[in-house]
């Protein structure tokens, strides 16, 4: 049977993609950002999963205002790189895991989550920035990726509790998949940032640190955190952090923190990254 071996989270700031793609990763501003992922790169090389369920949000790339699914899963064999207004990033296309993705779609729907199924999806920086941070610039990405898109653009996004419960349903789905696979679940986006209006540039390190701590110490408290607390305390775009709770719900009740990195600033954003291992 398949199993969830680990979970991790990472911000997906588009400026990271620009810095990497334009060969500026060695600049003083960017060196510490990329260095913060050295530990994880090494760890991943030794713990490479067969597939990753990568929870991210589309930033008005695949989904315009014509169609706004709350939860949608990419069930295709391959996902192309989106052109977000400056041409597609020069990174490999993403190889999916259609068997597992369809299984998760079927299992979660029968588990009462009304998933949208996607067969054509161009993936944007929300999905590709974490791949760059974790895997650098390979000829092809070293594992298969199942994109799971969460609406956090049009208000309201799903609640943190609902995201957590979806994570639990994803775990049940993966554990009922008959192949012997190691699967990781990644949550992306966040941490504190606001990209709009006179309050743009907001960073709340205290909120972020408490959020990182509670992923291990008190996920039950995070489940109950209302949307307005994310927006008020950590900025309008910090609402992306609900996606981290899909990852956390998928890992089960008890986890061990293996690694953490937090860095300000990354463009407008507090970059947060944590690696967790289930201990149930």
């Amino acid at each position: 049977m398949a199993r969830i071996t680990a979970g991790l989270t990472s911000s997906h700031v588009p400026a990271i993609a620009a810095a990497w793609d334009q060969g500026r990763a060695d600049e003083d501003y960017w060196r510490p950002v990329f260095a913060g992922f050295d530990w994880t790169k090494k760890w991943l090389a030794e713990h490479m999963p067969d597939a990753i369920v990568l929870v991210y949000n589309d930033h008005a790339s695949a989904f315009s205002l014509e169609l706004i699914p709350t939860f949608a899963i990419g069930c295709a064999d391959r996902f192309e790189i989106a052109d977000e207004g400056y041409g597609p990033r020069p990174v490999p296309a993403v190889e999916g895991h259609a068997d597992l993705a369809w299984h998760i779609a079927q299992s979660t729907i029968l588990d009462e989550f009304d998933m949208t199924i996607i067969n054509k999806l161009d993936v944007d920086h929300g999905l590709t920035v974490p791949l760059t941070l974790m895997f650098g610039q390979p000829e092809a990405w070293p594992t298969k990726i199942i994109p799971l898109a969460v609406n956090v653009v049009q208000f309201p996004p799903p609640t943190g509790n609902r995201c957590y419960m979806l994570g639990q349903a994803i775990r049940r789905a993966i554990e009922s998949f008959p192949e012997d696979l190691d699967v990781q679940v990644w949550g992306t986006g966040g941490m504190s940032h606001q990209l709009q209006g006179p309050r743009a540039g907001l960073i709340n390190k205290e909120f972020d640190t408490a959020f990182l701590d509670r992923l291990t110490a008190d996920p039950e408290a995070l489940r109950k955190l209302p949307h307005i607390d994310y927006v008020r305390e950590a900025g309008s775009e910090a609402i992306e952090l609900v996606m981290w709770l899909v990852m956390r719900g998928a890992l089960g009740e008890h986890v061990r923190e293996l690694y953490r990195f937090y860095h300000v600033p990354t463009s407008n954003t507090a970059l947060g990254h944590i690696v967790l291992e289930p201990t149930n």
Binding site: H59, A60, E84, Q196
Partner: peptide, 23 residues
Amino acid sequence: IYFLAKIFSTDGKSYQYAAGTMT
């Protein structure tokens, strides 16, 4: 903002530039 990003990307500007102009 994520839609408006297509305008400033077309202009060759970053999110930091666009966010800064709003403050």
